[in-house]
Design a protein around this nucleic acid. Sequence first.
RNA 1: GCCCGAGUGGCGGAAUGGUAGACGCAGGGGAUUCAAAAUCCUCCGCCGCAAGGUUUGCGAGUUCGAGUCUCGCCUCGGGCACCA
Length: 851
Amino acid sequence: MTRYDPAALEPKWQAEWEAAGVFAARRDDRPKYYVLEMFPYPSGRIHMGHVRNYTMGDVVARYKAACGYSVLHPMGWDAFGMPAENAAMERGGHPRDWTYANIADMRSQMKPLGLSIDWAREFATCDPEYYGQQQAMFLDMLAAGLVYRKAAVVNWDPVDMTVLANEQVIDGKGWRSGAPVERRELTQWFFRISDFAEDLLDSLDRLTHWPEKVRLMQANWIGKSRGLQFAFDTVDAPAGFDRIEVYTTRPDTLLGASFAAISADHPLARALEAADPAVAEFVARCRQGGTSAEEIETAEKIGLDTGIRVRHPLNPDWHLPVWIANFILMDYGTGAIFGCPAHDQRDFDFATKYGLPVTPVFVAEDAEETPLAEAFVPPKSDRVRYVRGFAGDAVQTGDQGVAAAIALAEAQGWGRGVTRFRLRDWGLSRQRYWGCPIPIVHCPACGVVPEKKENLPVELPHDVTFDRPGNPLDRHPTWAATTCPACGGPARRETDTMDTFVDSSWYFARFTAPRASTPTDAAEADYWMNVDQYIGGIEHAILHLLYSRFFARAMHRTGHLPAKAVEPFDALFTQGMVTHEIYLTRDAAGRPVYHLPEDVIRTETGASLKDGTAVEVIPSAKMSKSKKNVVDPMNIIAQFGADTARWFVMSDSPPERDVEWTAAGAEATFKHLSRVWRMADDIARSTAPDAPAEDLALDRATARAIADVTAGIEGFAFNKAIAALYAFANAVQKSSAGAAAKRRAMATMAQLMQPMVPHLAEEVWALLGGQGLVARAPWPKADPALLVQDSVTLPIQINGKKRAEITVPRDMPAAEVEEIALADPDVIRFLGGAVPKKLIVVPGRIINVVA
RNA sequence: GCCCGAGUGGCGGAAUGGUAGACGCAGGGGAUUCAAAAUCCUCCGCCGCAAGGUUUGCGAGUUCGAGUCUCGCCUCGGGCACCA
């Protein structure tokens, strides 16, 4: 070979690795290391986000293998979900065929990347082998009381007669029908995740290798609060509604109450609805629009005075009006609140709109009571002065005020302190075809009956159609017809399938024994769990990661995971997204039509299609297939090779940050890798004699590179590791050391590059006569003696501004350093005869003269 | 609306509270070449001839010293329980 030729050398080394079985995960006497990237959804094409994500994991996997670990680095497919059904609806075909074809395509696109994956463990969540085990666990969890049924609200499209996902609700309307969405109740299956709320919250403290922001987001999501639950006695309420239970986290503001409010789904609202057309009309309005918190909280706040009054618990003669309000959720607390407009902005807005009083309860510690233009909501830890307090001191923190109010209510017997969590149980039922069937049978005689384990998997039928909306399982002529596992009589299968989050909540465990005839294999799980390093997108910070933590606990409780695995991910890294501009034009109806970057000509002022049509440019957003702002890595690989793609996505941007994709850098990366190849080729043939001083300098540069690259990888700062490799390449190139020293340096470079550009590293290693595969070579160690600098350059600041610089021996005593610093001509000039007031010497770092 | 992040040259970014701009891209100049590509050398935050001044989204503060810590804003991004 006379030049760097990735098209030739990359397949060659991939074949060598395959033949040697380098990446097969084995249980042996080495310490194990399990590195896992979130598995991909098989959209059909890999994109740069995948390349970035899996290269990061691969860098870690290869580095840990070099460090002597037995590494497990598997790959699979999160293969159930709505896009397959959407594709079937739009283009015909079948979700199963679409999904497996996509998997085959994506696998064939990923393999050329040279990832150190044990492909023998691959599976897809839509494999009956996988989802059958999931059904078995569902039954175990049902038996253990971890699953139950209750009514829950869904988005209902009244035209398509189907349930909509939140993302299918756009501006309160169904995405296909355009009909206003309604909220409708269905009986659905739930996991009792809220039973674990306390543990899931407390255990966050132990996840010391998780990003602080993720732990904080989860803690806020779980939302532990201490508050007061009490009942208002009602006046003029319908029979059976003598009391309205409310929960509040601010009982200290009770004397600022100006109204009570209940959810439109509150039992009292339902009772009034039946009797009063005006109420019925109002609650119907409340039930319009989607179910998402975002929609509910940003919708216009509306209310209706029911005419019912309640007695204030601290003064029975004080009556508060009861309103029905659209922002009170039946799912939270008791579905009823009292409003204190002075200290809650939402209540303030509501009171202002409907002319309800605003009565301050407390003011800032040193302030006087004045009319409020907005709610006064200081942190609960701040001290405030209570002007309408009823418990505790006049001046106390909000937290103290709350505690005192609870204590008083309990002592007087009209309320009790209650700890609540915001976390709600996990609704897992989906009215869709392409998911794991819930293995339940509905029998007219026996009711809800679990399917027998020997009848698992309950497989999806293949003969379904998607020519009309709704769940094909529900209208399948025969599939649901079965016999009752309990009585043997005719019965009907549950036609709901599971949320795809269930699939992705235990795949990490299945990878430890992917072909086991039980969900997990105890010995394998015991050896491989936990995942030592998990890598995924920040968009999963709450839902996926919290569900997985719950599922691991539920699996432990049902005997499918060891106790040590209840926190399945020891370390978490959340990589940033790869973003790109979005290009769109409008169709005749004004709806957006998206265009791929390769179909768009970008100029400095704007963009157009190849036929000249002007294109709207939306600034960078997460790459998404539906928006078509995706870049095809296969083009980069075809042109420059996988190593260029790998190096490029690791360089420049820190891994945790989003990166805006530009094609400009790929060619520059290729040039650099070509240069490294040429250097290796030259050095391999060099006969330059030893040159002691230069050889030592190069050995020092090598030690520096080992230290910096190692620190970069260990610290998940791959961009810094790459920067160190650039610097090292420059040092080798400029060095006039002898051939032997240069070969040492270059062989080390091959080892240090191996995690990022494994193919080139093998080639360089082979050119230099390295033993075996560099993929199996141990990680180099830096000689500490070579890392120590003899002298150090210290900046001298005068009043915090740098004015001079001195170079002194590394271990010179501070007194001598001071003397030299004060004798420096620039220092003397800038002091202008002034006597220094103070001298700060930070050894090895800086000198600051305060004049 | 609520929760969580991010913001540094033309660009991606670096910087245990201690020389802001490592490393790379783009760009300027030069060498090589008949010429070009490739390669190599070199310069490169901004203002200024220079001395010097100025500079990390904006505004305050703490400190001998702040990109880094605190408070208040602005902008962008992620999540908000049926997108995965």
